[in-house]
């Protein structure tokens, strides 16, 4: 499902939530590279990394001229006198879209957390909600913003920096939410690490699709889904249990073991017939004891040998 979203199925406001344990910028760059390869204009508003660093990790096959980077990293507050102003204002976000030729446009904000920490969150949410293309249920092609048609807005959000209430508001605004989490499974296929993505998508018809899947990222390739989690990897949270009652109760913990804890009747018979190494059977006793034996003793040169009987003074 993640591959389909990257390939263009995601429209409207797309929220990529990451945490300290699992960074989401690489997945965001996969979206950017895929959009550029499809021929869309991509406008990246970068607040957290420089243009050099952002472009350094982009797929080199993605047309770089289609990706326009609006540098808000070096002087976002105007301390050096050349920065942006009024970051929360919707107009300033889209100043760079002026003059964009007609056609589908993808807007990328890296990251929304940077803005939310510095601007009143109601103003930012209003700016997001006020963009008609990004409203849930409204198709993207309706909108013309300075002549450009904003098809999707990709937003990176550091979920561990904001209160749950604000996260809930942002999720309600989004058409697609991709929440990332790290796994304890180390390296997956090839060189890329294995991550867990929880995808939530509102379809145009109102249907809601949720899915969890493992994915891995390779340089120059779109994200590759490896497999879906088989059952909960950890005890579910309270809200998960409420949403899917019975899932945890029917889960068999023996299904994921690497060994078989049960023993069949035949296996038990074979096991019982197996002689144990410490069992002193009669035949083993015969083989050990009936051969006789003799003790040879060769004194060392330094031994103090005494021919006298050591017990001759015992008057017993």
């Amino acid at each position: 499902m993640l591959g389909e979203l990257v390939a263009g199925a995601a429209e409207g406001l797309v929220l990529v939530e990451d945490t300290v344990d699992c960074e989401g910028r690489s997945l965001l760059q996969s979206f950017v590279a895929a959009a550029a390869c499809r021929g869309e204009c991509v406008h990246v508003f970068g607040f957290e990394v420089s243009e050099e660093e952002f472009r350094g990790c982009l797929d080199p096959r993605a047309a770089p001229h289609r990706v326009q980077y609006h540098d808000s990293f070096h002087d976002p507050l105007g301390w050096s006198g050349v920065g942006l102003e009024a970051l929360g204002a919707q107009e300033s976000w889209f100043q760079g879209l002026r003059g964009t030729p007609g056609g589908a446009v993808t807007v990328v904000v890296d990251s929304l957390s940077w803005i939310l920490l510095r601007q009143p969150s109601p103003a930012v949410c209003q700016a997001l909600a006020g963009t008609p293309a990004l409203m849930p249920g409204s198709p993207g092609e309706e909108v013309g913003l300075w002549g450009a048609r904003v098809q999707r807005m990709l937003v990176l959000l550091h979920a561990d920096l904001h209160p749950p209430g604000l996260l809930g508001v942002l999720r309600s605004l989004a058409r697609v939410v991709v929440a990332l989490a790290s796994t304890s499974q180390g390296l997956g296929v090839g060189r890329g690490s294995l991550h867990l993505a929880s995808v939530f998508q509102r379809m145009r018809a109102g249907k809601v699709v949720t899915k969890k899947e493992y994915y891995t990222l390779q340089p120059g390739f779109p994200p590759m889904s490896v497999e879906e989690p088989r059952g909960p990897m950890s005890p579910p949270r309270d809200d998960d249990t409420m949403a899917h009652p019975g899932t945890w109760l029917t889960f068999d913990p023996r299904a994921q073991l690497t060994f078989n804890p049960g023993v069949s009747v035949e296996q038990r018979q074979v096991r019982d017939a197996m002689p144990l190494p410490f069992h002193f059977s009669p035949c083993k006793k015969l083989s050990v004891l009936d051969q006789g034996g003799q003790i040879y003793y060769e004194p060392d040169p330094g031994d103090d040998l005494d021919d006298e009987d050591p017990d001759d003074d015992l008057d017993v």
Partner: peptide, 13 residues
């Protein structure tokens, strides 16, 4: 180590 996931190697675990 915190870097792009696409460039992570065994050494970056």
């Amino acid at each position: 180590p915190r870097g792009p996931a696409v460039l992570s190697t065994e050494r970056d675990l």
